[in-house]
Design a protein around this nucleic acid. Sequence first.
RNA 1: CGGGUAGCUCAGGCAAUUGCGUGCGCCUUCGGGGCGUAUGAGGAAAGUCCGGGCUCCACAGGGCGAGGAUGCCAGAUAACGUCUGGCGUAGGUAACUAUAGGGAAAGUGCAACAGAAACACACCGCCGAAACGGGUAAUGCCGUGGUAAGGGUGAAAUGGUGAGGUAAGAGCUCACUGGGAUAUAUGGUAACAUACAUCCUGUGUAAACCCCAUCCGGAGCAAGACCAAGAGAGGGCGAAUAAGGCGGCGGCCCGUCGCUGCCCGAGAGGUAGGUCGCUGGAGCAUGCUGGUGACAGUAUGUCGAGAUAGAUGAUUGCCAGAUACAGAACCCGGCUUACGAGCUGCCCGAGUU
RNA 2: CUGGGUGUGGCGCAGUUUGGUAGCGCGUGUGGAUGGGGUCCACAAGGCCGCAGGUUCAAUUCCUGUCACUCAGA
Length: 127
Amino acid sequence: MLKKEILRRNSDFSSIYKKGKSVGDRFVVLFFRKNKLPYNRIAFLASKKVGNSVTRNRARRLMKESYRQICDELAVGYDIIFIARKTIINTKYADVKKSIEAAARRAGILKRQPKAAACPKEIRQQT
RNA sequence: CGGGUAGCUCAGGCAAUUGCGUGCGCCUUCGGGGCGUAUGAGGAAAGUCCGGGCUCCACAGGGCGAGGAUGCCAGAUAACGUCUGGCGUAGGUAACUAUAGGGAAAGUGCAACAGAAACACACCGCCGAAACGGGUAAUGCCGUGGUAAGGGUGAAAUGGUGAGGUAAGAGCUCACUGGGAUAUAUGGUAACAUACAUCCUGUGUAAACCCCAUCCGGAGCAAGACCAAGAGAGGGCGAAUAAGGCGGCGGCCCGUCGCUGCCCGAGAGGUAGGUCGCUGGAGCAUGCUGGUGACAGUAUGUCGAGAUAGAUGAUUGCCAGAUACAGAACCCGGCUUACGAGCUGCCCGAGUU
RNA sequence: CUGGGUGUGGCGCAGUUUGGUAGCGCGUGUGGAUGGGGUCCACAAGGCCGCAGGUUCAAUUCCUGUCACUCAGA
């Protein structure tokens, strides 16, 4: 993941919360919005409700790994926020991955044909 | 074997595939790219309860006051409210543990309820030709009174036992003794212990105010240093409340609400943002020496995170089996709290030989 | 990183200053009043004062430690 693909500014977050759409699943909640850029911007969140710092780090790492596996199949030009729910405590990686896939499919940002890829990795190679 | 008590160690390892941060080297289309290699969370990283380094501000000689903290003695330490060793006291059969442990003979305050009285007291009781007054046929019978031995209340009632003494009693006197103060001697660096002499004999509370001694300037890495868009002083051109543009409501049009032209822009300031501070240090490991110990000295070896929306993950296999509490955020020394496994010493009880 | 505040019946709060009886409102239960309900009246239950130690004769109150929640500032 490149550094420009990480959401940082508070204004970005608030505009996504305000104007974007959301999809929930068993372990994660997804906020997303079009950003008119040739790549996606991502953020992973785990609030204090999830637990202590070890639990929150674990949740974010699981979500990151899942995103890395499926990012080739995602559509391009979105800001996406992944938020961990309380139920993510003591879950396995495979379950989190499934949950994220399901949420993305329901959000409609999962591509039908994964071969027309626009993953950031390939942008990187083109530019 | 059971129970207790004191301390120590580890915090899963190895391999494969695939990912992440940083350092170094090379390549580069210069992009917060690629390749290779090394390295990458803890015993508490936690709570932020103390102490220090470091940085800025104040004072540059120090003192006083306010406020706060600490409070047996000696030592360790950069320093501490920490640690070590001792003393006293308390608890425990013991190993051992706990200890804010200076001053109540400087002053003020408080001690509910109960009780007569909780700085000074007479309810019941005892006494009474001990003293004064009154009274009866007679009697402590009545008043003033003496008395703290006994009863009862209370957490606490004027130190305890015995004898003398007395009207009855009382450290009123004596013997022994509890406690305290002072002086001397011995041991100890000291706290203190022991012995002896003299004197005294209501209490608790200072984690109530207070007194005494010692210590403390304030803020904190978002400290602080450096670079520095945009906006802004101003200048030039244009326009005249219209049109147009942008945004909100709305599926769209209509409608409605809000905002308003373009260009140049020194110095200073420092916003967004970035760079440094940022990890080699009261460092770590091993050995030797000194010390009861905390610790100190010395020799050799060694470099072990530095992120900035925040880096350690995922999958599989093997090791008999398996991981609790928990994630560095300027850095150290402690304290406290959470928690898995293993080992050792010592004490008590029971049993066997 | 720094500095405050709060914790008391089921809920919201007093009491803590100056230690000694734990209280108020709503709610709950029972009874009364009404033909019934509401309002009203009477009575009752319900608290180891967040937790653990200490000081004291005695602690919700004083002291120390600790846990949780919450606010403010940089």
